[in-house]
Write a protein that binds this DNA or RNA. Structure first.
Lengths: 347, 347
DNA sequence: CTGAAAGCGCTAACAA
DNA sequence: TTGTTAGCGCTTTCAG
């Protein structure tokens, strides 16, 4: 931001020129001091520093950016911050970026395919050094749109094999582990909330696949009646899907919400219907939202390594930014570690 | 972001110079076309536009910013996005900013006083045009730190009468209205969850004041036993405070959570203890979080005008940015409209 | 209607 | 160790 001083009357901010004049040295010397260049005589440095303090000089970041070609800003594009998962992801990215001396500009796409595609070519985020992009509306057919002329890191499970670095969680393995966890606790009829019919890629499909793998490995049958589809993954959807399943009179001894929000919604319906959790039924979520620690009972869930996703996304992006111009490496896929967070909802 | 083209081999992005050369005109003419300057001959415009397309020219925002003194970026500083209230606030600010052609950079302070103060003088956000600041750790004693040399808008209830524009909700009136709503429905013993002992300013104090005013106006006694203090305003705090009140055997016919998160936590405990909501007890929240529409029962709450807060904050900030250098107006306080959102938890 | 040129504030090569 | 100077890419007087 532009600097001015004195209350009421605004003065033009001090420049390197001003400081140089004040200190009786050249502009280069001031620049050296500001940038902690080593070869500056101590007395000179002190003199310049004094001038800097008196004039309350602060470097003009815009000018610096123009000169250096870097802004120190990265962009993060998510569907919407109102969804806890993305809010917590953004939180993680901001923290990780801060550790690397970067600052984060956030765009919301609403999960709309067209807006996502438009964003990629938008001139709006052109003063950031790169983009961390979490698409929701685009799918693998749109992957070519990801071939953008600036550093980008892709997040999530909508698109695989695109032309950019990709950081994502081990959805299949994690869902399989979650299901195995339930099976190991003696559960045999595990309902799933949040399936997307006919989807082959995407979080829902991958997690459902993990679920099926676990059943198969344990020799348990896959029962279509235990699959509760939902359109979106909001709490309300979990609520409705669970209610529908109860109404159908399906028997089950555990519920696996494909994300925490769904699981919390389902849990609510179960308790309303007088099911005891975990006595009558186990409930498992996915995402490890903050909230799951505080629900009643606290929700057992899969920690997809969100902190690691954020940290790695920033790191990978930074690597690409640093590699500008050099013969670039082929896009890599980075998978994060997951862990089951065992809480009260599973015994 | 820097533009390059061709897969694999990165080329320097096209500049105005390049386009001018390609089109056989001067750089000024290209600039005119890019900026939709009116007095350009149609044929010239077409010629230039062709060159722009061929070279995939995109203006360098950094250079433009240096020249114009504006970046089109504003910063938003909040405690943390993991708290739904701030995530939804950020959502609103991003949307409002977008309507004004601005983009938003988000900083997290953790609600820590020292970090908040440090942020205000940090050089990190110097490439934004202004700041929307929602402090949580600072208090009125720190108000002088808000006298910064760049446009700023203050949000929230921590500091009043500071040297900057302030956008805030009508806490006292809104809490009073909420309480009156409960009273009008026949409630006489209204428990409060989330009070902060000894606080005189801040959301908790103001909302408690509104509660007391409503009681007084209705001729109802203020009973200290009905006040449930909490340190923070997380779901868990609501849960604990409600539990404590039940353990103390206090009688009540309504619960007013000073924010939604508290109310949802309290609601959970009540249901666990077999209270029927709203049959046995009414529950009222404050904030109108998205989630309150989907809880069971859906939570009646106060909509503090968050969308309006976001919109107004951006608008006021933009006014200040525009008024740079001119004799500035004294700081103003802007109060938003509130509304009771009546849902299932109150009958 | 279009061109020439100055300069936003800074960094960095090159000189001294 | 410090000074001089040429741009980074753009907007914007001022001429023509």
């Amino acid at each position: 931001m532009e600097i001015a001083k004195d209350v009421g009357r605004r003065t033009a901010p001090a420049t390197l020129q001003d400081v140089a004049a004040r200190a009786g040295v050249s502009i280069k010397t001031v620049s050296n001091v500001v940038n902690d260049y080593t070869h500056v005589r101590a007395t000179t440095r002190a003199k310049v520093q004094a001038a800097i303090d008196e004039l309350k000089y602060q470097p003009n970041m815009t000018a610096r950016s123009l000169r250096s070609g870097r802004t120190g800003v990265i962009s993060l594009a998510v569907p919407e911050l109102s969804l806890s998962y993305f809010a917590e992801l953004a939180d993680g990215v901001i923290r990780a970026a801060e550790r690397h001396g970067l600052v984060v500009l956030i765009e919301q796409t609403g999960g709309d395919r067209d807006r996502e595609i438009e964003l990629l070519t938008s001139t709006r985020l052109h003063l950031s050094d790169g983009l961390i992009f979490s698409p929701l509306g685009m799918d693998s057919d749109d992957a070519h749109h990801l071939d953008v002329p600036y550093p980008m890191v892709l997040l999530g499970e909508r698109i695989f094999g695109g032309p950019v670095d990709h950081v994502t969680m081990r959805n299949v393995e994690a869902a399989r582990a979650a299901t195995e966890f339930l099976i190991s606790r003696g559960r045999k009829r595990i309902a799933v909330i949040g399936a997307h019919e006919g989807e082959v890629v995407g979080s829902a499909a991958l997690r459902l696949q993990g679920y099926r793998e676990a059943l198969a490995a344990a020799g348990l049958p896959f029962d279509e009646a235990l699959i509760g589809p939902t359109g979106l993954w909001h709490r309300h959807d979990g609520l409705v899907a669970m209610k529908a399943m109860l109404d159908r009179g399906v028997e089950f001894d555990a519920v696996f919400g494909l994300n925490d929000t769904l699981a919390l919604g389902a849990m609510r319906v179960l308790q309303e219907a007088r099911y005891k959790i975990p006595d009558d039924v186990f409930v498992m979520g996915f995402d490890d939202l903050d909230e799951t620690q505080y629900s009643l009972p606290a929700l057992t869930t899969v920690d997809p390594g969100r902190a690691e996703i954020a940290e790695m996304a920033v790191k990978v992006l930074l690597d690409r930014i640093g590699a500008r111009g050099s013969r670039s490496q082929p896009p890599l896929q980075h998978l994060t570690e997951f862990a089951i967070r065992e809480r009260e909802s599973t015994g």
